[in-house]
Design a protein around this nucleic acid. Structure first.
Lengths: 248, 248
DNA sequence: GAGTGGTCTAGACCACTCG
DNA sequence: GAGTGGTCTAGACCACTCT
């Protein structure tokens, strides 16, 4: 029932509610706030920090949205009992692997312009034949291949300048962010199929081995498709793991 | 640049911000608010409805969280250009299929108590040997099998009474909701593997055919595991499709 | 400089849960 | 009945974007 030490810095440019949310989250992560324990009521918390109740509520709400806290009217706000891992986020595989500590290796298999064909043109919303940049990469971890990743990028989104260098030092999403793209949402399809001979050779599997497939179109805030990916993962070495929150 | 007709009913028990959010969402869905069009500024909107600005903001914020609106400081709030489909939600396959209009058929293959073994016990957080309810179902659409679904449920969560009837009339999540379970989050793993002989026979595939696998543990608000599912989907007939929103 | 959203305040009343 | 979160108001000042 220990109290987390909270404080706010009114001279900081960081919003007050965000400072509080960060500290609460850190307290939960570190175990200072135990799972299942009740926070004090909102008014007392706000008073203790010299904040108004709406500001305190905003801090709490952001953690409720993340699934770290649960509110029940008439009862109070408590830390969730079960550790909720991050909900599924818009991120590239590279980011996923980096965050979990596995050092991904990248081999850039190909980088070239090509005219967009049916499926690619449709996904990107471009006229058939528009030139786009195609990127083929092989991802591996601990010395063994994990995935063959193919992306198509509109030239007006990324240009061609130093794409190679950017991809060799970071992920595709980092490249897009660095190019000023503000990503908004993505549409994904995850399926499975058997490997053909060429894919099997690339991924060190046998022909006919099950592969996980993932297709994704990413959109920016203006609704422009900024990336189309069609990726193959070795089912024997990779699976997608993620959390969902109940609709609230 | 048409204006959507908005109004609020102050005698309704439905919160004002929610009434506004519903009407805005309906206007977007129906096309009355065009993709990419700017909403008026928050203060004018609030005045027009006789609401305070925070209430109007709350309505807008809920749609931003759904990915339907985009706010930019100094610019305004606009309807997203691209249709964002529902982000991935906590729902059962049955619910998924119903919502997209495909009538799923269900065959209840088995319903029995059994002691929880290693993997099941671990996922549900129960001592090995605790009796749980095991449900095996075969899902099909348009006459052909799609998935073999296996769920393990703690007896204290569902009891045993009229489980069969409930599962024959609705999905597993509907059953849980009807039992008063308030679901909070779930942890999922999606992978792939080759079908063995028995699975192939059940799903009308050939042995060695690629299958999509999905394992899920669902937790309620108290952090109790209320369901463990391990499901197999025919990769030739089914894939997971979902939207993601950028972290924001 | 004008207009927008982002943040914040100091109150208020209500609905719900629990003892 | 006491305590909690849910909703709502009527302001305020700031940071950012655009022209």
């Amino acid at each position: 029932m220990d109290r987390a030490r909270l404080s706010v810095d009114r001279n900081s440019p960081v919003p007050l509610y965000f400072q509080v949310a960060q500290q609460l989250e850190a307290a939960i992560d570190s175990g200072k706030l135990e799972h299942g324990s009740l926070l004090g009521n909102e008014i007392d918390l706000a008073d203790a920090l010299g904040l108004s109740r709406p500001t305190m509520r905003q801090a709490i709400q952001s953690l409720v949205d993340k699934g770290l806290l649960v509110r029940r009217r008439g009862v109070g706000t408590q830390v969730v009992h079960t550790r909720v891992r991050r909900p599924l986020e818009l991120s590239s595989l590279y980011d996923d692997l980096s965050e979990t500590g596995q050092r991904p290796g990248t081999a850039l298999l190909g980088l070239e312009r090509e005219p967009a064909e049916g499926r690619v043109a449709e996904a990107l919303g471009l006229p058939v034949g528009t030139e786009v940049l195609r990127v083929d990469r092989l991802r591996s971890a601990q010395g063994a291949p994990i995935a063959r990743m193919r992306n198509h990028l509109p030239l007006e989104v990324v240009g061609e300048e130093s794409v190679r260098e950017a991809l060799e030092s970071g992920g595709l999403y980092a490249l897009l962010r660095a190019r000023g793209v503000r990503m908004h949402s993505a549409r994904q399809t995850v399926g499975a199929r058997a490997a053909d001979a060429a894919e099997a050779a690339q991924l060190a599997e046998e022909e006919g081995a099950p592969l996980l497939t993932m297709e994704r179109v990413t959109f920016d805030e203006r609704g422009r498709a900024v990336e189309f990916g069609s990726h193959l993962y070795r089912a024997s070495r990779y699976s997608f793991e993620f959390s969902l929150l109940a609709r609230g």
